[in-house]
Amino acid sequence: MKRIPGSFSLLGGVIGAVLILLWVGADGYKQTLVTTTATYALIALGMYVPYLMAGSLSMAYGAYAGIGGYAVGLISSKSGLPLVVAWIVGPIVAAAVAVLLGLATRRLSGFFLAAVTLLFGMAFTAWLVDAEGISGGSAGLGSLRKLNLFGWQPDHYDVVVGSTVVVCVIAFLLDRLRMSPWGVIVRTMRDAPRAVEAAGVRVPVMNLVSLAVGAAIAAVGGGLFTYSAGSVTPDTFTLNLVFLAIFMPLIGGSATPWGAVLGAVIAVELTLNFPAVETSGTLILALGVLVILLVAPQGVIGYASRLTKLVGGRRG
């Protein structure tokens, strides 16, 4: 038994993050790629809880990330509060919205849930465009204040490093959460909800809690992206992004939250940093997802861990 559960994966994640940061260096474009990857990863990590643990696919994550983003924009432009408050308010509001939407859709599952949550995401975008007084309309909110953490003002590179740290910490905590009693209950809800109910946990309520946790994580990602990009508009968090976030854990491997992170790295690399196939990176990704679904449902990490088990088993 390992002494600290999840530390092995964390080590892998940290090594990966350090390698990425070394590769990035002072290159501004690559730095943007890293913050984008971190955002994608956080949205995928948020979805991980309800989608891969509890087995219900909500597609309103563009809205939750948007709430996190607009929290940063609004706190910056309409209040005198320290900017860091946005990362507390945003996730809480996103969690509350997720609970309300979850209550409205509590009887839905599968395709019905996906359709309604997609519509909600579209309606949220439409509302952002309409509500000019609050959201700044289609121009969005820009010219943000700088973060100030107890006198320390992080520069752009600090933000890049900080975002990878946040991703690693959240993936590590989620990995542990997955193994914990809470994770066992939520993962059992996916295949055997009746057993969970019969054991004394109200399944619909637990579902809402898992949705809230997921939305809060996605909102952290949305805030991060908005801060590093310097502005947020209704089109910042698109439906495309939500689709990509569904596929990321499949690419990386759905057995652990780190799979979602790895998937995010691959997705950003393919869609944004693959000059040879500039316009078709997303197409390659989409086709790749189909192939993975059909021939390799465990994703990259699933195969890697099977391989290590095989090697370790021979040695032992």
């Binding site: 559960p5 999840g6 905590l173 989620l174 542990r176 959460l177 193994m179 914990s180 009693p181 809470w182 994770g183 209950i185 946990v201 309520v205 637990m206 809690v209 946790v213």
Partner: peptide
């Protein structure tokens, strides 16, 4: 349930 999520992440 909410406390369990935090406890689970900290002490699985």
């Amino acid at each position: 349930m909410i406390a369990g999520a935090f406890r689970g992440a900290l002490r699985p």
